[in-house]
Design a protein around this nucleic acid. Structure first.
Lengths: 180, 180
DNA sequence: CTGAGATGTTGTCAATGGTAAGATTCTGGC
DNA sequence: GCCAGAATCTTACCATTGACAACATCTCAG
C-alpha cells in the first residue's frame, strides 16, 4: 500500500475523492472543512496548499473534474435533444457535489486554466447535443429547462424517493419543450 | 437615532438587511460571517443567537423573507404564464442572496415554521399563476424553465451586462414552452 | 552519490461560531 | 412612582478553521 510512504503517491486524486465525499455527506460547500477532507484522505491539514493553493483551488479542481464528467456524459448521450437533457439531469443527480460547485462561481476562480478548459469542453458538448435546433434561444431554453429541473431536484423541491431516477422523472418534462 | 439605546429596537430587521448586504457583496453563503454581519448592523456578534438561534436560524429567516417576496412578486404578475415566469426570473435577479439561500436546503432547517409557511405561500402563488395549464407536468416544466434560467443567470453562465434586465432576456426563452 | 526540487508535516496566527455569564433596558402589576 | 422579572444585548471564553512559514523526508538527474 501507499500508506508506508512518506509521499502519498496520488494525493491529488485522493484529495478530490475525499472532497466530494465530504461535500456529499457534510452539507454542501458552506460547511466544507479542508481539515476534515485532509483527515479523510489521511494526510495533514496543510498538505493541500501545495497542490491546490488553498480551498478555492481545491474547489476549482472539483469543478474542473465535474465539467469533464458532464462533457463525457453529454457526448455519450448522442445528439438527441431529449436524451441529452436526460443525461444532464442524471449527471446532476449522480454527482450533486460536483454540480453544485460547478455552478457556484463565488467558490473558485473561474480563470483557473484547468477549470476554464473543462468548462469549455462541457459547453461545447452541450451545444453539439443541441445542434439539431440551431437556434440560440432554443438552446438556452433547453439548457434552462434541464438545469432548472436538476437544481430543483437536488434542492429537494421536487418530491422524490432516494431510489427514484431523476432522468426518468425529467423526460416527460423535457418533452414539453417546443423545438422547431 | 437608535444608536444611543442599549436595546437596538429592531435588531431583527437590521440583521436581515445586513445579512443580505453581506451575502451580496461578500461572495455567497459559504463566505458569510456572522461577526461581519454583526459589525454591519452595529451590534456584537452574539446578539443574533438570541433572535435566530445561530447562523442556520439567521439564514432560515432570510429564506422566509425571500419566499414572501417571491410570493408577492408572483401574485402581482397575475395569472399569465409567461409574465409569471418573467416575474420569477426578475425576482431572482433582483434578490440574488435570498434566491440562493432559499434553494440551498443544507443552509437552514426547512421545518422552521416561519420558513415553511412562507415556502408554502410561494408555492401556492406559483401554482395559481400556472393554473391555466392544469397539468402537473406542465407546471413542473414551467418551473424548471424559469428556475434554470434564473440559476444560470445568477451563476454568470448566461453572458450579460450589469444593466441588462433578466426578465426581458428570459421572455423569448420562456415562450418556447409548449403549453397545451 | 549528491544536492536541488518536490512532497508532507508540524507549529503558529488571526478569525470564526457557539455558549455561558453578566450588564442594561423594558414591562406590567401594585 | 416603583420594583421584580423578563427580554435584550455585551463581554469573555473555547474549540475549530484556513493560511502561512519553517522544517522534515523523499525522488531523481547528473
Amino acid at each position: 500500500m501507499t500508506d508506508r510512504n512518506y509521499h502519498h503517491g496520488d494525493l491529488r486524486r485522493a484529495a478530490l475523492t475525499a472532497t466530494v465525499e465530504a461535500l456529499e455527506d457534510g452539507g454542501g460547500p458552506a460547511a466544507l472543512s479542508m481539515r476534515d477532507v485532509a483527515r479523510r484522505a489521511g494526510v495533514s491539514h496543510a498538505a493541500f496548499s501545495h497542490h491546490f493553493g488553498g480551498k478555492r483551488g481545491l474547489l476549482a479542481a472539483v469543478a474542473a473534474e465535474g465539467y469533464d464528467l458532464l462533457a463525457d456524459a453529454l457526448s455519450a448521450a448522442g445528439d438527441d435533444l431529449i436524451e441529452a437533457g436526460v443525461a444532464y439531469v442524471r449527471f446532476a443527480a449522480g454527482h450533486p457535489a460536483h454540480f453544485e460547485v460547478m455552478f457556484s462561481p463565488e467558490l473558485y476562480d473561474r480563470d483557473v486554466p484547468e477549470a476554464a478548459a473543462a468548462g469549455w469542453r462541457a459547453r461545447r458538448a452541450l451545444t453539439e447535443a443541441l445542434s439539431a435546433s440551431a437556434n440560440e434561444t432554443t438552446e438556452l431554453a433547453a439548457w434552462s429547462m434541464v438545469h432548472g429541473f436538476a437544481s430543483l431536484w437536488l434542492s429537494g423541491s421536487i418530491p422524490h424517493g432516494p431510489a427514484d431516477d431523476a432522468g426518468d422523472f425529467a423526460r416527460p418534462v423535457i418533452r414539453l419543450l417546443a423545438v422547431p
